[in-house]
Nucleic acid binder design. Structure first.
Ligand code: FES
Ligand code: FES
Lengths: 141, 141
DNA sequence: AGATACTTGACTATTTTAGTCGGGTTTATA
DNA sequence: TATAAACCCGACTAAAATAGTCAAGTATCT
């Protein structure tokens, strides 16, 4: 049960971006330097964020990325989904009637993992990027 | 963010065991057949459960495993801990003042992941093996 | 004695992760 | 118009984690 760096980095980078979003586009190079994340890796991550319309790109010198929505409207769920960091507690296909390993029924614990998944997704649905930025400002005051 | 089979199997096997715990020890072979888990793998898992005193072993013919505590007193947390399925959302050492990659301060998102970790552990602390068995009985009625 | 079942430790194939690398294209600005 | 900053794209790869397997035991019941 662990979080991967991709998800961690995606959120970290977006919080950074949201903080500096006011004036100009923010370049990945800056984010890379400030947050200590490999530039090449960031590019992969932002390609996905762009496809899901969470950020917009501005090409050329002085270019970078800007948020494509209000920070309040970007939930952790959206970010995670964009970078394919999904919460996966069950092994079976959820929709199907079959169980874990293609068994005819759901296993003894299916229900439990399903509950767990909801529990976690609940957390992700509540938190917005805006919340994170604010939490952060408070902390540093 | 995903659950490994080791954790899944450990819980599955223990629910099975708890259901049949009344009379005789339950053999891994039976659990293996009923739950479709490799016997060899189960042995690894039960070795750990035994070390953490969640189950007791009975050797010889008609042997097997029995619970070492009341099902009500075995929480998911205990099971997960026993098989080294830990919830790990942060990358830094929690106790240390340092951040993710040995940076001098905690990163922008440290707080968030810490909250998430508590949120999940909360779930695991509440659920006991007994709850699971009962949920299951209800379902099958 | 034989069968059943736990015990231990090493070994391995597969998958996932966390990147790297090498080539682009676009655009501001000097 | 040259140059450099920045995004864009796809392929590649080393390392780690996962999900087992395998072999060779030991204990106990019948
Ligand atoms: S997790 Fe869905 S059937 Fe086992
Ligand atoms: S997760 Fe703790 S400092 Fe980044």
């Amino acid at each position: 049960m662990k979080l991967t760096s991709k998800g961690r980095y995606a959120v970290m980078a977006l919080v950074d971006l949201a903080k500096f979003n006011n004036i100009n586009p923010v370049s990945l190079r800056d984010i890379s330097l400030r947050q200590g994340i490999s530039l090449d890796y960031l590019e992969q991550i932002f390609a996905k964020l762009r496809k899901k319309e969470i950020v917009q790109s501005v090409r050329g010198t002085q270019g970078g990325y800007i948020l494509n929505k209000k920070a309040k409207e970007i939930k952790l769920t959206n970010i995670f989904e964009a970078v394919d960091e999904k919460v996966k507690t069950v092994q079976c296909k959820k929709e199907s009637k079959k169980g874990c390993n293609g068994k005819p029924v759901k296993c003894l614990t299916h229900n439990l993992w399903d509950e767990l998944e909801s529990h976690i997704n609940n957390f992700f649905n509540k938190k917005s990027l805006d919340d994170l930025v604010k939490d952060n400002e408070e902390k540093s005051v």
